[in-house]
């Protein structure tokens, strides 16, 4: 499993789709489907961070969860190079969406998630030590070695091992997020989905946790899918960035290229909208449309200031524009879009 530049990939997703049923009326009649994700392709190399940005309803959170099979995908393929499965005598790459429950249990060690709100992902009735040790217990590690391992993990995320005896409500938001990260690291995963993992934190604490993610990546060679709505945060941690709109990737580029020369008008609109001293350069009209009734053609065309008649009828596929950028826009080559 390699990409065109012949890098060995850790994860390769093709044609990922997720549909949710929509129910209406008194008898909750099934009235249709929402396409939360549509034809999403992405690759992640070992030790790499792919940022996933977009506004509400863009599908960024659904993508992260579907890849980990916390949500069952409706369509698509996902190949993952699992160390644990290979060590157990399985194939070198596993098809995540076809993996049987026995294989999925092994895969869980390699793929973890850190959520926005650590308070809801930690068990409030268990001490911090027990919370962090939970995956180790499930993996069959003995009690004394678990304790030693938990102390080490807490140290790795910058927490005193004395916190082991505390309960989640006794910790601050930043400390709880560190605990959630320690637990995600317990089984030495290769890949972590960070789902708005710093969004709820105050800025001084957010910077601490962002730096922790970067340090852990350097020390352990972790790969991240970093899902967030804050463009500057994603830029800080990501090697490459995928911009999502209404369930599709509209631009996928190297971080520097994305900000130097965006290739999709929506990316430009996002950059323009970030508040700052000069004020927003241009304000895009309208709001993200309801995914139940997506627009025809290019999903962004009703809000796009460069839209042409063709944009309302034909949906442009995501295609490579330069070696560093791919965009789903009919006019990606000719538009002179403004970066930072």
């Amino acid at each position: 499993m390699r990409d065109d530049g012949s890098r060995a990939l850790l994860l390769s997703v093709r044609g990922l789709a997720k549909r949710f049923p929509v129910h209406r009326g008194l008898f909750r009649r099934r009235a249709g489907e929402v396409h939360a994700l549509n034809g999403v392709d992405l690759d992640i190399a070992p030790g790499e961070t792919l940022g996933l940005v977009g506004e509400s309803g863009s599908g960024k959170t659904t993508a992260g969860r579907a890849i980990l099979r916390l949500l069952e995908p409706s369509e698509g393929l996902a190949f993952f190079r699992s160390r644990t499965v290979a060590q157990a005598g399985g194939p070198e790459t596993v098809d995540l969406f076809q993996a049987p429950p026995s294989q999925l249990r092994l895969l869980r060690r390699d793929m973890q998630i850190v959520f926005q709100d650590p308070y809801s992902s930690l068990n409030p009735r268990l001490r911090i030590g027990t919370n962090v040790a939970e995956p180790l217990r499930a993996a069959g590690m003995s009690r004394p070695s678990r304790r030693e391992m938990v102390a080490q993990l807490l140290d790795d995320v910058g927490l005193a091992s004395s916190l082991m005896e505390r309960f989640p409500h006794e910790l601050s938001g930043g400390q709880r997020q560190r605990v959630a990260i320690a637990r995600a690291l317990a089984l030495q995963p290769q890949f972590i989905v960070a789902d708005e993992a710093v969004s709820a934190l105050d800025v001084s604490i957010q910077a601490q946790v962002l730096n922790l993610f970067l340090e852990l990546q350097r020390a352990r060679g972790l790969a991240y899918l970093f899902v967030a709505h804050n463009l500057a945060v994603v830029r800080y941690v990501s090697h490459r960035i995928a911009v999502m709109y209404l369930g599709r990737i509209v631009e996928l580029a190297d971080t520097d290229a994305l900000f130097a020369q965006p290739r999709h008008p929506y990316t430009e609109a996002l950059i323009d909208s970030v508040p700052g001293a000069e004020g927003a350069r241009a304000v895009v009209q309208g709001e993200p449309p309801n995914p139940i009734r997506p627009p025809s053609g290019c999903p962004f065309h009703p809000r796009c200031r460069y839209a042409q008649p063709v944009c309302a009828t034909e949906r442009p596929p995501l295609r490579q524009i330069t070696p560093a950028s791919a965009a789903a826009c009919h006019f990606a080559e000719t538009l002179d879009l403004q970066g930072v």
Binding site: G174, D202, V203, S204, I205, A207, N211, A232, T255
Partner: peptide, 25 residues
């Protein structure tokens, strides 16, 4: 100073490391 140094911005150099305020409120 600490507050401003801990906020990532779109125009900061890519290799600059955020300087968080230590500890918590």
């Amino acid at each position: 100073q600490g507050l401003i140094a801990s906020i990532p911005t779109l125009d900061m150099p890519r290799d600059r490391v955020l300087q968080p305020i230590s500890g918590m409120v």
